[in-house]
Amino acid sequence: MELQELKEKLEQTGFPVAYYSFPENEAPPLPFICYLVTGSDNFAADGVVYDKALQIQIELYTRGKDLQAEESVEVALSEFVWNKTESYIDSEKCYQIAYEIEV
Rank of each mutant, 00 (worst) to 15 (best):
S21Q: 14
A27C: 04
K93N: 15
Q55G: 10
A53T: 14
V103H: 13
E26P: 00
Q96E: 10
I56V: 12
K84S: 09
S91P: 06
K52D: 11
A98M: 11
L36P: 03
Q68R: 12
T13I: 07
T38W: 00
V48Q: 10
D41N: 15
P16T: 00
L77A: 01
S72R: 14
S40L: 04
L54C: 00
Y35A: 06
L3Y: 02
S91Y: 08
Y20I: 11
I97W: 06
P31G: 00
L10F: 02
F43I: 13
Y99C: 02
I97E: 02
E5K: 10
K7N: 07
F22V: 02
V73Q: 09
Y19M: 11
L30G: 08
V49P: 07
K7C: 07
E70A: 05
Q57M: 03
L60W: 02
N83E: 13
D51T: 11
D41W: 07
E5G: 07
T38E: 12
Q57V: 03
V75W: 06
K9N: 09
E100T: 15
A45W: 03
E100D: 15
V48L: 06
V37Q: 12
Q96P: 00
T62Q: 03
E2K: 15
N83K: 10
S40Q: 09
I58W: 02
F32L: 06
Y35T: 05
V81Y: 09
A69P: 03
K93E: 14
F22R: 05
S87M: 05
G14V: 01
L30F: 10
P31W: 03
Q96G: 01
E26R: 06
W82Y: 15
Q96H: 06
E100S: 15
P31C: 02
A44C: 07
T85M: 00
E24M: 08
V81T: 12
V81F: 11
D66G: 06
K7G: 00
S91H: 12
P23V: 01
E2F: 09
A69T: 07
P29M: 13
L36E: 12
D66P: 07
Y61A: 01
F32W: 08
A45L: 11
R63S: 13
Y20M: 08
E59D: 11
E100I: 08
A76R: 00
N83V: 10
G14N: 05
Y19T: 06
I97K: 04
Q57L: 00
T13M: 03
K65R: 15
F32Y: 15
K84W: 04
Q55D: 15
E24A: 10
A69W: 00
Y99S: 06
I58F: 05
K65I: 14
S78D: 13
K9S: 09
F15D: 02
M1R: 04
E74H: 06
T85S: 09
Q96A: 10
L30K: 15
I97A: 08
R63V: 11
A69R: 05
V75M: 08
L67D: 14
D41Q: 15
Y50D: 09
S87I: 08
L10G: 02
I97T: 14
A44M: 11
R63C: 08
G47Q: 00
I58R: 07
P31E: 04
N42H: 12
I56D: 05
E5C: 03
